[in-house]
Design a protein around this nucleic acid. Structure first.
Length: 398
DNA sequence: CGTCTTTGACCTGCGC
DNA sequence: GCGCAGGTCAAAGACG
């Protein structure tokens, strides 16, 4: 498992963004090798499937520098243009390949986690705590409450109650569209009214939620007619710099590149969340999720609103991968420190786990891509808000 | 004029 | 049955 993560993390790690002047040998991914074996193998350099350090830069050095001085300038120009077109087409192909690999990887990883857990169901039971606070009060209240260790500590009996409720709900909602009831809540620090996720949204309502002076806004996806995806945006009552975005539903249309990786990431989480009647047991014991979600707001069930919800907390700067710490995209020195800091040992463990986690880095990469590629490839759509410099990435269910 | 946001009304589910 | 809260609808207004 760890081996798998390490082997795959290149896909979305910050190495992706480095401008490699000397790209490594092109490699390919083999998703079907056993975890004990390396899943990367060498292949002919002519094959265009370089998930590691995909160099999307225009390496025109050979085209321009090697032209003889005696050649006609027009010929030189046409050669450069031709080379430029070729490289652009190549980059486009690479983008497609990367998107496909990322999507396949997310799906396979979700399956792998479940399969591994079934083989070793008692692994890391202590790593997960199930929050049985009433999620119906409000998502942000629930999310904020999870930062208080005392509330995270629940009895085994309470956990069992939650699990049984979830299982019961799972049985009764068999006829429901699988992702319609799943919710993915993302906490991120942002002063912007809404954080960019690559999708286009239309506001259709706003309500004052109980226990929160900040209104809750309701949006639906407008990238395609009849897309069922909706999201709620609300600021945390206890920390107004924290923006809580809750996604629900599955997109019925292709997503822009900037949104694809994020959507795939939450798809994996949502898939596990809804992976059948035993989902809660798997969820509560998955070592992957215990590391993926630093302050685990496990799928909770509310009597009044029985949606299993997973919360991804991206507000804790000290758990982010080290190479990204201090990046203006993710942090602001003006912002207050995290509300509650876990013990340093926990921070270390979580840092290590997340740093090696390709899904998390996928989200970060997608966020960066949304900025880099936004104006060029439509990832920041007209009418959609720009990603604030202090905001973190968000996911959407897919 | 078309699109989007605002906002009060309405609907639904749940607890008492 | 009633009240409350969450969620949605739709008319009106704002904006480009």
């Amino acid at each position: 498992m760890e081996n798998c993560n390490r082997e795959l993390s290149f896909l979305t790690s910050n190495e992706f963004l480095r401008n490699n002047t000397d790209p490594p040998p092109i490699k390919e991914m083999d998703f079907f090798s056993s975890p004990s074996n390396t899943i990367i193998k060498q292949r002919s350099p002519t094959v265009l499937l370089p998930p590691h350090s995909v160099n999307t830069g225009l390496n025109l050095k050979c085209a321009s520098a090697e032209v003889s001085k005696e050649e006609n300038p027009e010929t030189e120009l046409s050669r450069v243009e031709k080379e430029l077109r070729r490289v652009q087409e190549e980059n486009q192909k690479l983008r497609v390949v990367l998107e496909q690999i990322t999507k396949s990887y997310s799906q396979l990883q979700a399956q792998l986690f479940i399969a591994m857990h079934k083989q070793n169901p008692h692994q890391n039971m202590a790593d997960i705590k199930i929050d049985v606070n009433d999620a119906s009060v409000s998502d942000e209240k629930q999310a904020c409450s999870n930062h208080h260790p005392a509330k995270e500590e629940v009895s085994e009996r309470s956990s069992s109650n939650t699990i049984s409720k979830l299982e019961e709900h799972s049985k009764t909602s068999d006829q429901e569209p699988p992702f319609r009831k799943a919710r993915v809540s993302v906490r991120a620090r942002s002063e912007a009214p809404m954080i960019s996720d690559g999708c286009q949204w239309r506001k259709y309502g706003q309500k004052m939620a109980k226990g929160n002076p900040c209104p809750r806004a309701y949006y639906r996806c407008t990238m395609a007619v009849g897309c069922p995806v909706r999201k709620q945006v609300q600021r945390c009552a206890e920390d107004k710099t924290v923006l809580i975005t809750t996604y629900e539903g599955k997109h019925n249309h292709p997503l822009p590149p900037a949104a694809t990786a994020m959507a795939n990431t939450t798809s994996a989480a949502a898939a596990m969340l809804l992976s059948g009647s035993t989902l809660t047991k798997e969820y509560s014991t998955l070592p992957y999720l215990s590391s993926f979600i630093p302050y685990p707001t496990m799928p909770t069930l509310s009597p009044s609103q029985p949606f299993p919800t997973i919360t991804l907390d991206l507000t804790h700067q000290n758990i982010l991968p080290l190479p990204l710490q201090g990046h203006p995209l993710f942090f602001s020195h003006k912002l207050p420190p995290p509300m509650a800091l876990p013990p340093s040992s926990l921070v270390d463990n979580v840092s290590a786990a997340i740093s090696s986690d390709p899904n998390f880095t996928a989200a970060l990469t997608a966020a960066i891509s949304s900025i880099i590629n936004g104006p060029q490839r439509g990832s920041v759509l007209p009418g959609s808000p720009q990603l604030h410099s202090q905001s973190c990435t968000t996911y959407s269910t897919n």
